[in-house]
Simulated scan of single mutants.
Amino acid sequence: MPHPDLMPIGVFARRSGLTSSALRFYADSGLLPPTEVDPASGYRYYGADQVERATALRRLREIAMPLTAVEAVLDAGPDEASQLIDEHVARVLGHAVAAQRAAVLIKSSLGDAPTVPIAALKGPVLADAVEQILTATARDPDLPVLGGLRIEVDPQEVTLTATDRYRLSTRTLVPVEPATAPWAATVDGDELRAAAAEVRRSPLVHVGATPHGIRLRMADREDRHCRLLPDEFPDHRLMLASLPGATTRATVPKDLLLRALEEHPDEHLTLLVTGRGVNVLTAKADQEHHDVLLPAAVTGAPLRISFRLTTLYPAVSTAIGPDVMLDLRGHDQPVTIRSADRGDLTTLTMPIDPARTPA
């Protein structure tokens, strides 16, 4: 007779979330042998102390981890197990990205689908723009389009736009060769990011549209393909058109502002913009001894406005040139961050209400 504290396989299956057949498989493979097997009936019995291992085994298999790797994780200490899981996930993601790229190439070749020329751009300029604008993307399983880069083409310019709902970045490029017709679509941001290194090393990149993606053609290099995202991109043009005019404008040295943000002690901060300059405060009133006053050319009314550091810093860091221009509309309105010497890169950043941030 089995020990009364042991569970028959059916009960253990319900406790662990594994099926009885899976438990038999894992027992036979040596990963999860039962505590006891009835020699007469062959019934398998498990102990309560095996539930944790069985649950971990199930979860590892749910992320498609092979049995040999599962065994290594189960038998490892916490640090080594964590590293093994990270390495497995990195491999899975790498395979998924490779599969996506291959799928775009396969779909673009089905039925000899033509590539429609969109524009020709300087490779280093295009790579810079892609990397700058993609800082405003977000990974949201419910809204995958927020991970994409919107490309809009007309005969005179190519406009790149991205938004994570808290920031919006847009940059306009002048094509080397004018486009023959207007074109617009949202392209997968991860695939563009992966292609940026090759694009940067190419003096000229010909961008073409296929039914399911774009093709980046470069001399002496293999074509790169990036898939299109089907969901509708947020109506950023309407948002830009509906913005009120700036009531305060401040032009600040970019390196000094970045240094103040990097050394800031809090995850939230406040800018106090006056005729004296831009004062970088924390979002907490009792910590204003951390103030940093930056020289700035300021016009308009004084304004106090707060931000999350993780929202403001990327917007400033991607600005072009030695100075950034802040167009301010009020403490609860989007701020436009522009390069003071070049207006083709524009970022909108949402402020926060400091009263609603956690203490």
Rank of each mutant, 00 (worst) to 15 (best):
P124H: 00
A96P: 02
E131W: 01
V89I: 10
T135D: 01
A250M: 04
R139T: 12
P39S: 10
D75E: 15
P211V: 00
I352M: 05
P124W: 05
A56Y: 12
R221L: 12
R356T: 07
R171N: 07
A48W: 11
T135V: 04
T115C: 12
A197K: 11
V199F: 07
D327A: 08
L192Y: 10
T247N: 03
R224Q: 11
V70T: 05
Q333R: 11
R139L: 06
R342P: 02
R356C: 13
P78S: 14
G47T: 00
S21E: 11
A54D: 12
A181E: 01
S306D: 04
R215F: 06
S82I: 00
V292N: 12
L271T: 04
I337P: 03
L240C: 12
E157S: 05
R329I: 06
Q333P: 04
R59W: 12
L281P: 13
H264I: 15
A69T: 02
H206G: 07
T210I: 02
D128H: 10
V37L: 15
D164N: 13
L149Q: 10
R53P: 06
Q50D: 10
G111Q: 00
L258G: 08
Q333A: 10
S16D: 01
E191W: 04
E36P: 13
P4A: 11
L271A: 01
G213K: 00
K107T: 14
A40Y: 07
S202Y: 09
T311D: 11
A359V: 07
A119T: 04
A54T: 08
D5E: 05
D266K: 10
D332G: 05
D353H: 11
R356I: 13
T210P: 14
R14H: 15
L6C: 04
D220E: 08
P265D: 09
R44H: 12
R249V: 12
E267T: 15
P244A: 05
R167N: 10
D353M: 10
R304T: 10
R139D: 06
H212Q: 15
D112E: 06
E288H: 08
A301S: 06
V207E: 11
A76C: 07
P124V: 03
T115N: 14
K254C: 15
V187N: 13
A99E: 02
L23G: 06
A250W: 06
D28N: 13
R59H: 09
R356G: 11
V37E: 08
R200Y: 06
Q156I: 09
V316K: 06
R53S: 02
A184R: 11
L143H: 14
R304I: 03
S29T: 08
P234T: 08
M350W: 05
Y45H: 02
